[in-house]
Structures are given as C-alpha cells and as structure tokens.
Amino acid sequence: MWKTRDRNLFLAPAVLVLALVGVAPLLFAVNVSLRQFNIAKPSLGFEWNGFANYVSVFQDGYFWGALGLTVQFLLMTIPLQFALGLGIALLLHHQDWPLLRALARVALVIPLATTPAVVGLIGRLGFDSDFGLANWVVTLFGGAKIAWLGDPNLALFAVAFMETWQWTPFFALVMLASLSAVPQDAFEAATLETDRRWLLFRYVEWPYLLPGLTAVLILRTADVMKLFDSVYVMTRGGPGSATELVSLYTQRIGFRVFDQGIAAAMALLSLIVTILLARAYIRIFYREATA
C-alpha cells in the first residue's frame, strides 16, 4: 500500500511537468481548433463553431499543397541523409585511427549544434546570387551565376541542401553508435564464413542498425513536419510558395492572419500525419528487426 504511494510520489513531478508542458497545451490547441478564434478580430468573438475550422482546412487547396510539398521535402532529404550518414558511419567505424574518429565525431556535432535560424542565415549567404559560395563554385567551373533563392525549384533544392548539411551528422552519429554495438566476435566469426563486404553488412551489421534507425526516422520526420526557423530565415516560404512547408503555412495563418482556430486545426492535422508516419516506420522496420 505504502509502496504504491511512494512510487506515485516519485513519479508525480515528472507527470506534472509533462502534463503542464505537453498535455495542457495540446488540450488547449484542441479547444482553440473548435472555436472561432482570430485574436486580431476580437469583435467576431471566440464562440464554439464545431468542426468549421477543420472543414475549411480540408477545403483549403493551399494547405494540401503545403502538406504535399512537405512530403516531397521528406522524400528529398531523409533518404539522402540516411545514405550519407550511413556511409560516414561505416567509413569511420572501419578504420584504425582513433584520433581521426574522435575528431570526426566533434566535427559532426558542429552542424547539429548550430541554431536553425543561423543555418538559415548561412544558407541565405551561401546561396546569395552575387557573393555566395554556391555561385563561386559554379563560376569556378565556368558557369553563369544562378539566382538560387529566386527560382522555385532551385530554392527548394537549396533549402534541402542546408537541411541535409545540418542533419546528416545526426544519422552518422547514431549509426556509428549502433555499429559499435555489433559484437566483435560475431563479426569476426562471420568474416571466417565470407569475405564479401555486402553480406557482412546485410546479415551482421544491419540488424543492429535497425532500432536506432527507426528512432532517428521518427525524430527526423517529426522534425521536418515542424521545420520552420531555417526555412523561414532563408526563403520565408518563397519564392511564391516554392518552399512553403506545412509549418510555415500554419504559422502564416496563425500569426499573420492571426486565425488561430484554423491554425490549431492545421497543427493537429499535421500531428495526426506525423503519428501515422511514425506508426508506419515502427511497423516496417521493427518487424524486420525482431524477425
């Protein structure tokens, strides 16, 4: 009896904090999403309006456009980050210079530790059409200067490039940690059976990578779904709507039009998409890992 109470007491602070910073705002958002809630138009009132906000989001072509663009952005960046990250991890894992490995680990942390707004600024400078690094490289090869951030396709590419620059190290570090978990004796035993690198990777190392990979995929997908700062600084969603990801669109409705009811409905729909994607990852990857 006492034991249960003690246990609860110890858990209480964590539960309380979680409730305050996680659950309460979520409930508030649900509440707001079911009301007329434009804080710049207090005269319209803040009445319940049922699912009217959701209906208008469902009918809003721009929202679906932004969501589609976000999925496209996910497909552009996550597989690339995974491939590059895995490559870096394998290279670092299978070489015998501990100093290089230590240095590389530090170097990998630098992009990760950079504030997203600063990443946006670096992107804006790097892809500047007059003074940018990207155009310096282009002119080095005899090309003409390109207006990276003024062209819809190139702007999306530039944003994806910065996103990949910042987050590939995250994949690399987690994959590297997962590789260190591969038992040395198992790996050595396998090398006696075959010297084909691909088979060693596929049947000895890959299963150990899966749990970490699943976690990273879930985190990164959620990150991209709410990716805002760096893109906002770099392109403000433009040119046109070329880089207007769903989070930028939601912010625009919530804090420029100030229709927070609609914005809350959009945010909750994005949350549902994120949860569905996370469940999908767990299904696809975890089943293989346990099989």
């Binding site: 059409s129 007059d130 990276w148 003024g150 062209d151 702007a155 433009g238 040119p239 046109g240």
Partner: peptide, 21 residues
Amino acid sequence: MPPGIVDYDHNEAVNALNQGK
C-alpha cells in the same frame, strides 16, 4: 530586372543600385 527578382527585398534592391548592378 535581375534574375531572382522575386527574392529581392529592400536591402537587395538598394544593394543592387549601390553596387552598380
């Protein structure tokens, strides 16, 4: 107009004149 004009804000326009572009 310079290419990428849709990415020009006030600073970029002022700069373009300042730099003789």
